[in-house]
Design a binder for these strands. Structure first.
Lengths: 343, 343
DNA sequence: TATAGCTACGCAAACCTTTGCGTAAACCCG
DNA sequence: CGGGTTTACGCAAAGGTTTGCGTAGCTATA
């Protein structure tokens, strides 16, 4: 509420000057001078009256909201909270705030949310929802919005993005499994319409070859979403094909969790019979049963980077897209073990 | 950006009427009539020009931001994302948006954030950070802000709050343990400055008596925060006292996770030697090692209720505080087992 | 002593909307 | 046909800020 907040006019009247003078004193722009005597009077009056600049009037005047829309595909995925925290913190340092929205992986909802955010005159958009060929992103760019993509990227160039090196990460996972003696390695792939799902799939094939291992398409299944349920379905599908396998690399942690379920449901054991790797190192990954071997990516830092990229975009008139790719790192836990003999 | 958006004036000029007429047509208030002919022309012109009402000017005029501040103590606690999702969804239906802020359990930061939110003229505040005697909350109320508390409540009356029945929930947990033959039950209590921590502690004592069990103060330890680390510390402390015990009820899931660690570090086993219960049924509680027996509370629904309570407050001039207490439910999983014999 | 140049501040427009009030024209009724 | 009511719309203020421009008084220079 804060009804009846003091305005520039109020403090101007109190001091006996014009409100424009008050404005300039309080904003202290170069090129405009006012006697220190008057300035001091104005400052104390402002303090006494508890003057706070009215954000509506200010925004109306400068045509900026100092608000950034943050669009997340699934807030309940523990990967995102650290990212969001990073975003929010660094945005706050510059006087910006984050408006959070969660599309729940629904493209239609996503579009509605974007409409709302645009209607609100957000100064920029941080999107974690991008598809590889995302028209929504293209539209935003075309309309002149500042956009930075996080985690996922789009194929079209010219967008700022903060991602991790999927190829490097997957290669580490595969190498780890190979070094444990695994030769029949399955892949529970993410949605191919999303950059991470696609790149990790490509990376899996490459890494297998690099290790001199054959990739068997029967040991690959694709998921429609990065969700536990899909991971379970895909893993069950692979298991049902009755090919020998001793390990599976899942395209992310949620899928890996689904793999756990499917493996247990099939009466197999992880890691004794089947090793599992995830991706993201989401919070609590170390608490699972078994603790998940996964590829760690610096979530909090990604949030910071995204916010900084956004602030950079906001600063300049003709924004240069900035692409940051962070290095992931394998963290070995209990879901991977030596390949069982005789497989 | 959206530079050069069409304004009321633009569409007025296009049609050849005054902009006030356009405003009334587009807003369609009763008590003001305009011929259907003109109205139709205005509507199509508005559509063609892509008119969207300027939120800054609108807010300035009506002195409302249609923005609700949501303050969370720890975003990385998986309890909150479902709550936030519930809040955001139901707020969106009425044209409100949520500004999310995360205090990271830091009271000073909390104060800073509240300052920022107030400066932004948020129409209301949903707080998940309340302490039992919270001056910040009292201040907000006094300043006329609409406030609804979620999860935690304050001792002072007159605040809207959405909570769960801590006594009922804890009683269920204790009864469950008692029915499994446990008699020496420990309690890893939450911060006593927070309603949930305090009430669950009280509830624990009551429930023990109700089951005819003695409560041994040596089997109780207090945590300074609802964090895994604290849970580990507290549980280790209890274990170090070398009293016989076969179960522990933790004041929330994160603390329970800490108990897991301490139990393992002490070379004991859960649930074979020591049963553990949590509280909240946070996402992935069923994936832990072992799957956590805990008290489920309807997180998503709490978010919805909180948002609805806020919308109700916003509607009326003299807001009647609404207090909702949701019923929790024990969900039994793998972290509780029959008490070992001979203890 | 003019003139130019500062200094220190005021004036008013602009941003865009909502809304109370005013006012023509059209209508109704007796 | 004259008076009053209704219909349909315009006018302008108000909300609070920023900012280009104007200006009165003073000082320094020629």
């Amino acid at each position: 509420m804060a009804r009846g907040r003091a305005t520039l006019k109020d403090v101007a009247e109190r001091v006996g000057v014009h409100l424009s003078t008050v404005s300039r004193v309080l904003n202290a722009k170069p090129g405009y001078v006012v006697s220190e005597e008057v300035a001091e009077k104005i400052r104390t009056a402002a303090r006494e009256l508890g003057y706070k600049t009215n954000p509506f009037a200010y925004s109306l005047r400068v045509n900026r909201s100092f608000t950034i829309g943050v669009l997340i595909p699934d807030l309940t995925n523990p990967v995102f909270p650290p990212i969001i925290r990073g975003i929010e913190r660094t945005l706050a340092k510059k006087g910006y705030i984050a408006i959070l929205a969660d599309s729940d992986n629904d493209p239609a909802e996503e579009e509605r949310i974007l409409e709302r955010l645009k209607a609100r005159q957000t100064d920029g958009l941080i999107l974690a929802t991008a598809h590889r060929a995302d028209e929504l992103v293209a539209d935003c760019l075309e309309e002149g919005y500042r956009v930075v993509l996080i985690n996922r990227s789009v194929e079209a160039a010219g967008v700022s993005s903060i991602t991790n090196d999927d190829h490097f990460g997957i290669a580490q996972a595969v190498r780890h499994l190979a070094s444990l003696g695994h030769r029949q390695i399955a892949h529970v792939a993410g949605p191919q319409a999303i950059s991470t799902g696609y790149q990790r799939y490509l990376a899996f094939r490459e890494a297998m070859q690099a290790e001199g291992l054959a990739v068997d398409d029967n040991l690959i299944a694709f998921c429609d979403a990065f969700a536990e349920k899909e991971g379970r379905r895909a893993m069950a599908q692979i298991l049902a094909r009755s090919r020998p396998l001793s390990a599976v690399v899942a395209a992310n942690d949620l899928l890996a969790l689904g793999c756990y379920d499917a493996i247990e449901a099939a009466g197999r054991r992880c890691p004794e019979e089947i090793s599992v790797t995830g991706y993201n190192d989401m919070p609590f990954a170390d608490k699972f049963k078994p603790p998940l071997t996964t590829v760690h990516i610096p979530l909090f830092e990604m949030g910071i980077e995204a916010a900084e990229a956004m602030l950079a975009l906001l600063d300049t008139e003709n924004p240069e897209p900035r692409q940051v790719r962070l290095r992931p790192e394998l963290v070995v836990r209990g879901s991977t073990a030596r390949a069982p003999a005789g497989i």
